[in-house]
Design a protein around this nucleic acid. Structure first.
Lengths: 237, 237
DNA sequence: TAGATTGTTAATCGATTAACAATC
DNA sequence: TAGATTGTTAATCGATTAACAATC
């Protein structure tokens, strides 16, 4: 039906790399969400999308979408919209998905195992290469296709296998030591679930702190606030 | 040493509730982090803190801290700073911590169990009252002190026990049905780990979507960007 | 061509920072 | 009192939205 989908839009209007402003942080923060929606559209077989269709889907303004996408390239085509596959690919590129980073998980507890079980990594082109723990009862066992290794091997392993990402799911008390060890072994980024803010000023490493508790608290606030203002407000009556 | 810590500052300058501007969303988003840092200070036995001390600790400007805290009350005292315990309590109050909400976890898979294992809920005054699954092999077993129940009971249970929060750790395919069921049974907020954005326009329920993958992607971006700009830039040389 | 939709500018809005008078 | 530190105003900065000419 939508035979215009077949028409390959002209996407070569930037033959030479133009000097562009750096992408603002607010835009970067939104990119993973765009990537997700575009991925879903792609899976659903949708070939093209306009900023106004996408805006309805995502609950943001069409203006913002056009503004955002234009920060890093003129990917649309007037009168046509955006090519879903192309745009999805461009955002992947910009975000560093499929750079082939290798990740290790340190801490084979509940959370470590839960993360090991997901397809989260491979879906983003990140290879889960090993899982570490210090519990002798676990070392040597297999978890989702990965042998559990001793943390004693961690440093050597990261160096040897050029590990880029360390997923930290160890107790607070051990977090600093392990994180520092990984940074020294060349790990570039630490995904920190240890429920504390890791600051490693002397190490050249990026830390992404996850605080699920903060999110739970935000939910409590929203529930409390909605309740306080009346669950069935009469503003619209 | 710090005997001035013992002096109870005067905190009764707002005897009557003054009309205040609503707290801006940017401030609300920052409150859980303040709460965390103040909690840590409290545990460390610190009684008072100035905006400039806290700013160094948290890596934000002192100006922002004072501005933020003033949105919802004059909690400090000139020449003294802020009383850690009092401020921590006020933020708890504002966020709805200790409102005594009850939570159920739906999905006793890896992630459901990992969340069940944490002290995240009780620490925020939320009671974990039950865990549900549809796997007959799990139903009846105990997980961290909670009996696994059948999802067939979910609706009745939520109604009967006045459950406020539903933690959703089921596969995507089941998420909508379960979420809608909970909303119909009076659940006020859904903490959604199903890796899709739950929109329930017909239900009067708040949804907090968790997308760990987005965070992993942000980490990839930061790694890629840092690398691209030279790991040891010479800007400072 | 006519219709659709982008890219981009300008206007608005909100959030952050700086500065300092108020005051403990 | 003198010193410290807040509360608050004003200035700056960045992010969002609206509008429309460019163009496919």
């Amino acid at each position: 039906m939508e035979h215009i989908d077949q028409v390959k839009p002209v996407f070569d209007r930037h033959p030479e790399e133009e000097p562009r402003m750096p992408v603002p942080p607010a835009v970067i923060r939104r990119l993973p969400r765009y990537h997700r929606f575009l991925g879903d559209l792609l899976k659903a077989g949708k070939m093209r999308i306009s900023s106004s269709q996408l805006s309805k889907l995502m609950g943001v303004t069409a203006s913002q979408i056009r503004q955002d996408l234009n920060c890093f390239g003129g990917f649309g085509q007037q009168g046509y919209g955006y090519n879903v596959r192309y745009l999805h690919g461009k955002i992947s590129e910009l975000l560093g998905v499929n750079e082939g980073y290798r990740a290790v998980i340190v801490g084979a507890g509940n959370l470590g195992r839960a993360l090991a079980a997901t397809h989260m990594f491979e879906r983003r082109g990140v290879a889960r290469v090993a899982i570490f723990d210090n519990n002798p009862a676990l070392i040597g066992k297999e978890i989702y296709g990965m042998k559990v290794r001793s943390v004693d091997e961690l440093s050597d392993f990261c160096r040897r296998e050029k590990v880029a990402i360390g997923v930290l799911t160890v107790p607070k008390a051990a977090a600093y030591e392990i994180a520092h060890m990984m940074a020294q072994a060349g790990v570039r980024g630490i995904w920190n679930f240890a429920n504390m803010e890791l600051a490693l000023p002397d190490d050249n490493v990026i830390v992404e702190n996850i605080h699920l508790g903060d999110s739970l608290m935000t939910l409590c606030y929203d529930i409390k606030t909605e309740t306080a203002e009346g669950r069935f407000g009469d503003e619209d009556l």
